[in-house]
């Protein structure tokens, strides 16, 4: 029985799919689609406390998942979920989401804060959060169009010490006022 015959038989429903005993390992799409119930189809989130994964770099997703896995990044569900995937699977998911278009959100934001954030971002964050946060250097996450509540939760975790800031980020964030940080979050949330 050749594969060609099986293909025809499956396509026409003459043969039960299960007759094709050997299945290929889960593809990047199979692994990643399961995340979409919480992170949105193709990683474009509609829920204000969940980040969009669409358009993140592979490196940023791998870094986040490894930190969830090790417990270095605080989490609710993600610590347990990340542990279930191998490094190769995590890389495959990183690749999948990096190929998706950045998810533009429409949110109610403060115009004055956006303007203030815009004036602060280049000199403070722009070296790593490049292209107005649409991209990130190395494993720096993209922040453009993320939901404001998500960004606020992350910043609160950074400031409380629950989530550890990279050294370069800490140098910039430490001297900044809370109002300035809030303005930056409004700015990045507004970028499309």
């Amino acid at each position: 029985m050749t594969m060609k015959w099986k293909g025809w038989a499956l396509a026409t429903g003459v043969l039960a799919i299960s007759a094709m005993a050997q299945a290929a390992p889960a593809t990047p799409a199979m692994l990643s689609n399961a995340c979409a119930g919480c992170h949105g189809t193709n990683g474009g989130s509609a829920g204000p406390s969940m980040p969009s994964l669409a358009g993140q770099s592979k490196e940023a997703i791998v870094d986040a998942m490894k930190k969830f896995k090790s417990g270095a990044r605080p989490a609710t569900v993600m610590g347990r979920l990340a542990k279930a995937f191998s490094d190769d699977e995590i890389t495959a998911m990183g690749e999948f989401f990096s190929k998706q278009k950045l998810h533009a959100t429409n949110q109610t934001l403060d115009k004055a804060k956006i303007a203030k954030g815009a004036s602060l971002q280049d000199s403070n964050c722009g070296r790593c959060h490049i292209e107005d946060g649409r991209e990130g250097k190395d494993d720096t996450p993209a922040m453009a169009s993320q939901w404001l509540p998500y960004l606020q939760i992350q910043m609160a975790d950074y400031l409380s010490g629950k989530r550890k800031m990279p050294e370069k980020m800490k140098e910039k964030v430490d001297p900044m006022s809370k109002a300035d940080l809030e303005a930056l979050l409004h700015f990045y949330a507004s970028v499309k």
Partner: peptide
């Protein structure tokens, strides 16, 4: 859905991974 599409196109099935 993935494996229906694969089967209808005569392609190899893919292992399940779910959450």
């Amino acid at each position: 859905a993935t494996n229906i599409v694969n089967a209808m196109n005569g392609k190899e099935l893919v292992d399940f991974s779910g959450i």
